[in-house]
């Protein structure tokens, strides 16, 4: 009956104008406050049962965004609507109740498990906090979940240090799914794993999604992983969304010059696929002092004077393919046509 209310494809999470600014210290000689705008005006929707990939380089704000959505980090401003409720207005008990439907898996399977708790205790903790169950029920539920994620139930009383990275990540996944959430934020869940183990964990996440129907907000810097797992993708740069599209559109027809460069820079394990690489100059600017106008103009190979003056509009180019650029690939085509 749970499944009835969240029909596949309908938005269950809506984020509008989300902002997270860190700092706010005024410097010694001026009263002007300096903020690090980690996430600056981000809006998107997550549909039930889909995987929304968030990709970008380190420092682009993707992890901060993922955590702000759950209010693990308190957002500076914005609206987060989940199942019709504005999370920003909830407090204490109500927020805790909603969080049972929203879980997170972290990147570092070594750091995200309490070394003093057994596997059984780690997975049981969310159940103890959220539901009033008997010890017996909790134990059964934990054992069932361990089986679902492919952990041998005889490890129930073992400690995290006895496990390899891949198995620890399975424990993290078990903890996240034990409450049968609607949304899981996956924050670089496979980045710390070896390639052969990475594939196992990716397959497990997909399998669980098919079985349980939850939506993933999947954060990663790895464009190949993102392409494999996502339905739709958000590309972030310096706290802003620069492009969103379905997976097919983004990879076959990237609009933003940053996405284009990013895609061309991935080393492909195929000797025949020789491509023209777009090598971006320089490094990511500091988010404390973001460039004027379009945030990407300092590294953009297509930049014109207007880019440093005017912030580009986030426009829809059809089929939900949106991009914020004055000279995106689409505009170019139109110019050529004229």
């Amino acid at each position: 009956m749970e499944l009835e209310k969240k029909t596949l494809g309908e938005p269950i999470l809506k984020v509008v104008h989300l902002k997270k600014w860190f700092g706010g210290k005024s410097s010694l000689f001026s009263s002007k406050k300096e903020y690090i705008k980690a996430v600056d005006d981000v809006s998107f929707e997550l549909n039930a049962g889909e995987t929304l990939g968030v990709v970008g380089e380190s420092g682009c704000g993707k992890s901060t965004m993922g955590r702000s959505v759950l209010r693990l980090i308190e957002p500076t401003a914005g609206e987060i609507t989940f199942e019709g409720k504005d999370l920003m207005k909830l407090g204490g008990k109500e927020l805790r109740k909603v969080r049972s439907k929203m879980q997170i898996i972290f990147q570092d399977p070594y750091a995200s498990l309490n070394p003093r708790m057994t596997i059984g205790e780690v997975i049981a903790e969310p159940l103890e906090i959220q539901l009033h169950l008997s010890k017996e029920e909790i134990r059964n539920q934990v054992l069932k979940t361990m089986e679902t994620v492919g952990l041998n139930t005889k490890y129930y009383n073992r400690y995290p240090h006895e496990f390899s990275g891949g198995q620890r990540q399975r424990i993290g996944i078990a903890r996240a799914i034990v409450l049968q959430p609607d949304i899981i934020v996956c924050d670089e869940p496979v980045s710390a794993l070896d390639v052969s183990i990475q594939a196992q964990v990716i397959n497990l996440l997909r399998e669980l999604q098919k079985k349980m129907g939850m939506a993933y907000l999947f954060i990663s810097h790895d464009l190949s992983v993102i392409k494999h797992i996502s339905d739709r993708i958000i590309v972030m740069y310096l706290g802003h969304i620069v492009e969103t599209a379905t997976k097919e559109d983004l990879y076959s027809r990237p609009l933003h010059p940053y996405t284009t460069a990013l895609l061309s820079a991935i080393p492909i394990p195929d000797r025949k696929a020789k491509r023209e690489k777009i090598i971006l100059e320089g490094d990511l600017p500091s988010p404390a002092d973001p460039p004027s106008g379009c945030v990407f103009h300092t590294r953009c190979y297509r930049a014109q004077p207007i880019c440093s003056e005017k912030k580009p509009e986030f426009k829809d180019y059809g089929n939900g393919h949106c991009c914020a650029c004055h000279f995106c690939n689409c505009e170019n085509e139109e110019e050529k046509a004229e």
Partner: peptide, 13 residues
């Protein structure tokens, strides 16, 4: 076992 950019599979080997 690495996801490829130029091909789509449902389950990774």
């Amino acid at each position: 076992c690495i996801p490829k950019l130029n091909s789509d599979v449902d389950t990774l080997p």
